[in-house]
């Protein structure tokens, strides 16, 4: 997730997640205007291995969806932090961002998880 300023957040899945999922074949992002809730599923990513829910990191309204993924779902694999983003969410409460991990904390979390 990237803070775009102005109370907006661009949301995708991490590099670690795309690697674990394998080749993504379909991404289901809801229409603009959809209400999303933090920690609740709002999107689905289907890979050759499985179908997985994507949980929203924040509460708010979906204001942009990445239409590129309709034709090229592989962007999620190729550029998880670039053109492979899923949606932009206008946050109801931007202070929710404070509760999320930053990149360094997430990396530590993943490394910890890998050990088990």
């Amino acid at each position: 997730m990237r803070d775009e300023g102005g109370g907006r957040a661009r949301v995708g899945i991490t590099d670690y997640a795309q690697d674990a999922l394998g080749d993504v074949v379909y991404v289901d992002v809801p229409e603009v205007g959809t209400r999303v809730t933090a920690s609740q599923p709002f999107s689905e990513v289907e890979s050759t291995k499985s179908v997985s829910d994507v949980f929203s990191p924040v509460t708010g309204t979906l204001v942009e969806r990445n239409a590129l993924l309709d034709e090229r779902p592989e962007l999620v694999n190729d550029q998880p932090y670039g053109d492979g983003w899923l949606a932009v969410i206008e946050m109801t409460d931007p202070s929710e961002l404070d509760a999320l991990m930053d990149a360094a904390a997430y990396r530590a979390f993943v490394e910890q998880a890998e050990k088990h």
């Binding site: 080749d23 993504v24 074949v25 379909y26 289907e46 050759t48 779902p73 592989e74």
Partner: peptide, 9 residues
């Protein structure tokens, strides 16, 4: 080897 991703896409 079949391209499973392309087959599904």
């Amino acid at each position: 080897r079949l391209d499973e991703a392309r087959a599904a896409r």
